[in-house]
């Protein structure tokens, strides 16, 4: 299985240059806004502020995008529950799934209420709490 890399550094040089230029222009615009406000031209100063904020917003967005892509890779472990049911009295025991469990498997443990044989009635994944799914 050949391994051709696509996992190198997350920020490319071009992106880094764009971010630097945007940062430089934004700082220049802020500096100019301060000067223009001082000279008594508020409408022109507002334009400079707007340009400055646009630049900052752009580079923040780019940086956030890069960071989000770098770290967003969790494959979450899901809790899987096994329900063991007494066929006679309906006593239920819910525990974590163990390797070897399967639906309708007769288990060795007996019902604590009526000492009857028990079987696995269900195995399912617990609902995700984030509410991402429908």
């Amino acid at each position: 299985m050949s391994e051709e890399g696509s996992s190198k550094g997350r920020i490319s040089i071009i992106l880094f240059v764009i971010i630097l230029v945007a940062l430089g222009l934004s700082l220049v615009a802020f500096y100019q806004a301060v000067i223009v406000y001082g000279s008594g031209d508020p409408s022109l100063g507002t334009w400079f502020l707007l340009i400055g904020f646009m630049g900052i917003a752009l580079l923040t967005y780019m940086l956030l995008q890069t960071r989000r892509r770098t770290f967003k890779l969790p494959i979450q472990a899901q809790r899987v529950a096994t329900t063991i049911l007494c066929q006679k009295c309906g006593f239920k025991n819910i525990r974590d799934f163990e390797r070897g469990d399967y639906v309708f498997k007769d288990v060795t443990e007996e019902c604590p209420k009526c000492n009857e044989k028990m079987a696995i009635a269900s195995i399912y994944r617990e609902a995700e709490k984030k509410g991402k799914k429908d």
Partner: peptide, 9 residues
């Protein structure tokens, strides 16, 4: 293809 959800079960 992932572990069966409760709603599906």
């Amino acid at each position: 293809v992932s572990v069966m959800r409760k709603e599906i079960f």
